[in-house]
Computed example of a mutant assay.
Amino acid sequence: MRVIRYHDGAVRHGILEDDGTIQPVLGGLFDGLKPYGQATHLDRVQLLSPLDPRSIYGVGLNYVKHAREVNKPLPTVPMLFMKPVGTVVGPQAPIVLPKEGGIVHFEAEVAVVIGRVARRVDERTAGECIFGYTCGNDVSERVIQGKEMDQGTLLVGKAFDTFNPLGPAIATGLDPENIDIIGRVNGEVRQSSNTSDLVYSIRKLVSYLSQAITLYPGDVIMSGTPEGVGPIAPGDVVEIEIPEAGVLRNPVVAEET
Results as ranks from 00 to 15, higher is better:
Ile144Ser: 09
Val64Ile: 15
Ala39Val: 14
Arg5Trp: 07
Gly32Pro: 01
Ala245Cys: 04
Thr40Cys: 08
Leu33Ala: 04
Gly28Cys: 04
Gly27Tyr: 00
Pro176Gly: 02
Glu239Ile: 11
Gly187Thr: 05
Leu209Ile: 10
Ala254Cys: 11
Val253Thr: 11
Cys129Ile: 14
Asn62Ser: 09
Gly32Asn: 03
Glu128Val: 10
Arg184Met: 15
Gly152Arg: 06
Val237Asn: 05
Met1Pro: 06
Gly167Gln: 00
Ala169Asp: 00
Gly183Leu: 05
Val185Met: 07
Ile4Gln: 02
Lys34Arg: 12
Gly86Ser: 14
Ala254Gln: 11
Asp52Ala: 15
Gly230Ile: 11
Leu26Asp: 14
Thr125Ser: 14
Gly224Ala: 09
Thr134Val: 09
Thr153Tyr: 14
Leu42Met: 06
Arg44His: 15
Ala254Tyr: 10
Glu244Tyr: 04
Phe160Lys: 00
Thr134Trp: 00
Val117Met: 13
Glu17Pro: 08
Thr214Glu: 07
Leu48Asn: 00
Asp19Ser: 10
Val70Phe: 11
Tyr216Phe: 15
Val96Leu: 06
Pro217Arg: 01
Phe163Thr: 01
Asn250Thr: 04
Tyr200Phe: 15
Glu148Tyr: 06
Glu177Arg: 11
Val89Pro: 01
Lys204Arg: 14
Arg68Ser: 12
Gly136Asn: 03
Ile240Leu: 02
Ser201Lys: 04
Gly58Thr: 09
Thr87Ser: 07
Tyr208Glu: 10
Pro168Leu: 03
Leu248Arg: 03
Ala254Trp: 09
Arg124Phe: 15
Val247Trp: 05
Gly60Ala: 13
Asn62Phe: 06
Thr21Leu: 12
Thr257Lys: 09
Pro84Tyr: 08
Arg5His: 06
Ile95Gln: 02
Leu33Thr: 01
Val238Tyr: 05
Cys135Gln: 07
Gly230His: 07
Thr153Lys: 11
Gln151Ala: 15
Phe160Asp: 10
Arg190Lys: 13
Ile103Val: 13
Leu51Ser: 00
Arg12Asn: 08
Lys34Cys: 14
Thr40Trp: 01
Glu109Ala: 07
Leu51His: 00
Val121Gly: 06
Ala111Pro: 09
Val11Ser: 05
Lys83Trp: 05
Thr162Tyr: 03
Asn137Ala: 03
Leu48Lys: 04
Glu255Gln: 09
Thr76Ala: 13
His41Pro: 05
Val96His: 02
Pro98Phe: 05
Asn250Ile: 02
Gly228Asp: 05
Glu256Arg: 08
Thr214Ser: 10
Arg54Gln: 14
Glu141Asn: 06
Asp219Thr: 03
Met82Pro: 09
Glu188Ser: 12
Gly173Met: 09
Ser207Ala: 13
Arg54Ala: 11
His105Ile: 14
Ile130Asn: 01
Ala126Trp: 03
Thr225Asp: 10
Val206Arg: 06
Ser49Cys: 07
Val220Tyr: 01
Ser49Leu: 03
Glu227Gln: 11
Glu128Phe: 10
Met149Ala: 12
Gln38Ala: 15
Asn71His: 15
Lys158His: 05
Gly86Pro: 09
Ile240Cys: 06
Gly86Cys: 13
Ile232Met: 08
Pro24Glu: 04
Ile182Leu: 13
Ser210Glu: 04
Arg5Met: 02
Ala39Gly: 12
Ile95Met: 08
Leu29Ala: 02
Ala111Glu: 09
Arg119Ala: 14
Ala212Asn: 11
Ile103Gly: 07
Pro251Glu: 10
Val70Gly: 08
Met1Glu: 08
Glu177Ile: 13
Asp180Asn: 12
